[in-house]
Amino acid sequence: MKTKLLSLSALVLLSSALALTVKHERGTVELAAPAKRVVALEYSFVDTLLALGVTPVGGALGTQGGDRGAPPYLRALTAKIPATGSRAQPSLESIAALRPQLIVADAFVQGEIYPQLAKLAPTAAFQSRRGSLDDLNAQTLAIGQLVGREAAAKQLLADQQGLIRKARAFAKKNAPPFVAAVVTPKSFTVHSNQSFVGSFLEALGRKNALSPKGDQTQYELSLEGLVALNPQTLVLFTAPDETPITQEWKKNPLWQKLSAVQRGRVYVFDRDNWTRGRGPMALKLMVAQAIESRLLPDTAPSAAFRDQ
C-alpha cells in the first residue's frame, strides 16, 4: 500500500509539472500536457506548427466564404491535412470530428465563434490577421509552449533574428519612407507600421510612411488619397490570377504624377505568400524576396518584382 501511495503521489507531481497555462487574447488556456492533436484556423498557425515539426490534424484550408485556400508556399506541405472549412467559415462539425486537444484561432476572424470553439476543445486566440511582426513572434513562442516545442520555437525566433540582421545590411540608410498596400481588383488597402508586412519591412530597415488609422492597422485608400501621400516608394501585394485596381489607375494622369512611379520605385510581390502566410516559413521567403527585389537598397526593382 505504501508503494502504491508513493506512486500515486509521484504521478500527481508529474501531472502538475506537465500542466501548461498560456495567455492569449481571450484569457488563458490550460492543458494537462502538451497538445498533440491541434486544429489551426489561420495559415500563420499552420505555418508555425509545421515549422515546429507538428502536423496539424486539421486546418482552415478551404475556400468557403471567398477564401483562397493555402498560400502557394504552403500548398504542398498542407495537401494531406484535412480541411476544417475555411478561415471565414470554419466547420464546427469537422473540427469536432477530429477530436482536437487544442484549437488555435484568430482573435479577429473567429472572434464571434470563439465560445463555440472553446466548447469543442481548449482554444487559444491570437491576433494573426491584424497582428504585427512582434505579435506573430509572441505567438510562435506561445504555440511552441502549447505543443511542447518551446525550445524549437526559441530557436526559430533566434534564426529569424539572424536573417533579419543580415537583411538589414542591404538597407539604405535614410531611404524615403514607403507605402505598402494589398491590391485587389476592387480595393487598395494600405498596411501601416503596426500590420504584419508593414512592421516586417520596417524590421528590415525601411521606414513605413503610415501609422494606424484609429484602431485600424490596415485601411483602404483611393487614388486621390494615395496622391495626397505621394510616396517615393510603393510596395504592392497582388495576386497573379487577378487584375489589380492599379491597372485601371494607371490610365489616370494622377498615377503618373506619383513620385514612386516617376522614380521607378514600385515593387510588386505575391500577396498570397506575403500577407496571408505570416509564419516563420513565410518570413524566410519574404526576407529572400525583399533582398532579391532590391527594395532594401532603394534601387530599381529586379524584373521579377517590377510593376508591369
Rank of each mutant, 00 (worst) to 15 (best):
L236K: 10
R294S: 01
A260E: 09
A288C: 15
Q247A: 15
K257Y: 06
D270C: 04
I291Q: 04
Q247S: 15
D241Q: 09
V266I: 12
Q232A: 14
Y219T: 05
S222G: 03
F269H: 02
F237P: 00
D270T: 01
P244K: 10
K284E: 02
D270R: 11
V227A: 15
A290T: 10
M286R: 10
G225T: 14
K284H: 05
G214I: 13
Y267K: 10
Q289G: 01
L226W: 02
T233E: 08
D298I: 14
T217A: 12
L234P: 01
A288T: 13
A228I: 15
G279C: 12
R265S: 01
T246A: 06
R271H: 03
Q232E: 15
D241W: 13
L285D: 00
K213A: 13
W255Y: 10
F237S: 00
V235R: 09
K213P: 00
T217S: 11
M281C: 04
Q218P: 12
K257R: 14
P280H: 14
Q289S: 02
A228D: 13
K251F: 03
A288K: 15
A260K: 04
S259D: 15
K257G: 02
Q232L: 11
K251L: 07
V235S: 03
Y219W: 11
Q256D: 02
T233Y: 02
Q232V: 12
N230P: 03
E242C: 09
Q256R: 13
M281D: 03
G277D: 07
L258E: 06
D298S: 04
K251M: 03
G264M: 14
L254T: 02
S259P: 11
Q247I: 07
W255L: 09
L226N: 01
Q262R: 13
W249F: 09
P240Y: 06
N273A: 05
L296T: 01
Q262L: 09
P212M: 08
G279V: 06
L283F: 12
P244Y: 05
R276I: 01
E248P: 00
D241S: 07
L254R: 13
F237Q: 01
E292Q: 14
L285Y: 09
Q218C: 15
I245S: 13
V227C: 05
L223C: 08
L234C: 03
K213H: 08
E220Y: 02
D241P: 01
N230S: 07
A282I: 10
L210N: 02
D272I: 11
K257H: 06
E242L: 11
Q232I: 12
I291Y: 04
V227E: 03
K284C: 00
V235F: 05
N273D: 11
L295S: 00
M286D: 01
V268M: 05
D272G: 07
P301G: 01
V268I: 08
A228P: 06
M281Y: 13
M281N: 08
N230K: 04
G225Y: 13
N252Y: 08
L221H: 05
Y219K: 12
M286Y: 11
T243P: 03
N252D: 15
R265A: 03
W249G: 04
A290D: 08
S222A: 12
V227M: 12
T243E: 12
R263W: 05
G214W: 09
M286P: 00
T299L: 13
K251S: 06
A239D: 05
R265W: 02
G279S: 12
G277A: 09
P301T: 02
V235Q: 06
Q232G: 12
V287K: 14
F237W: 08
I245G: 04
R294N: 11
